[in-house]
């Protein structure tokens, strides 16, 4: 029966991650988007920690700790300070409406379920479900990156996408280098955030709207 519990908890946490990804889709304010993202990272940390416990792989606890400290705490706080300083605390625009975004998101989840469950017929049920959920989170993150036009929310979308990858890596039984990969990703994200900080995209462009940046293209001047 122990196996059943292991499976159920892992299933619940991974499903929770997909759910939080959906919640991010309809956040129209940057501040609330950051809070939901922090929740996303907490769920990821729990999920990875559970995998560490189930697989008896103590090194995964490091990955969980990184997720908890870095992504649920440091990054949201830093980004929050940025958006307060830039005065873009309130509205963010989406390219298409919330209803449509949710529908497309549901389609993507259905797609990844259909795809992964069919392809991974030989793997263990735990790994299969985890991988299917992970692909859903990745696809939802990708969709968010495409639909958001704001630099900060693109970063948040990228981080949610990356959470999906960490989930997949943790779910793959005994995969080496997971810790190294999560560290490498953290460095990457730290670079992005520092980049936004240092270059103060707003000062340069007067807006963090990526669409406005397009007008600077050398081709059109």
């Amino acid at each position: 029966m122990q196996h059943g519990l292991n499976y159920d908890v892992a299933h619940m946490l991974a499903g929770g991650l997909v759910l939080v990804s959906f919640m991010m889709l309809y956040q129209v304010r940057l501040s609330s988007l950051l809070r939901v993202f922090a929740a996303h990272a907490v769920v990821l940390a729990l999920s990875v920690a559970w995998q560490a416990y189930v697989q008896g792989a103590p090194h995964l606890f490091v990955t969980a700790a990184i997720a908890l400290l870095f992504k649920a705490l440091v990054i949201p706080v830093a980004l929050n300070r940025i958006i307060v300083r830039l005065g873009i605390y309130r509205e963010i625009e989406t390219v298409f409406g919330i209803g449509l975004a949710m529908l497309v998101g549901m389609g993507l989840v259905a797609l990844s379920m259909a795809l992964m469950l069919r392809v991974t017929a030989e793997a263990t049920p735990l790994a299969r479900e985890d991988l299917a959920f992970a692909l859903s989170v990745v696809l939802l993150g990708l969709m968010m990156m495409v639909t958001r036009r704001n630099a900060v929310s693109q970063v948040v979308a990228f981080m949610s996408l990356e959470n999906g990858l960490i989930l997949a890596a943790a779910g793959a039984q005994g995969m080496p280098l997971v810790v190294e990969i999560s560290v490498a990703f953290s460095v990457l994200i730290a670079f992005i955030v520092i980049g936004i900080f240092l270059f103060r995209i707003r000062e340069r462009f007067d807006t963090v709207n990526v669409q406005a940046l397009d007008s600077f293209r050398g081709e059109r001047s």
Partner: peptide
């Protein structure tokens, strides 16, 4: 212009890198 180019490269490169990692995990699986 340089910052915009770097940002675009960064975002698209990161997406590419992320997809490649998913592929790498699948190979391991």
């Amino acid at each position: 212009e340089a910052l915009e180019a770097a940002w675009k490269y960064f975002i698209l490169g990161s997406v590419g890198i992320a997809l490649a990692l998913f592929g790498t995990i699948l190979v391991y699986m």
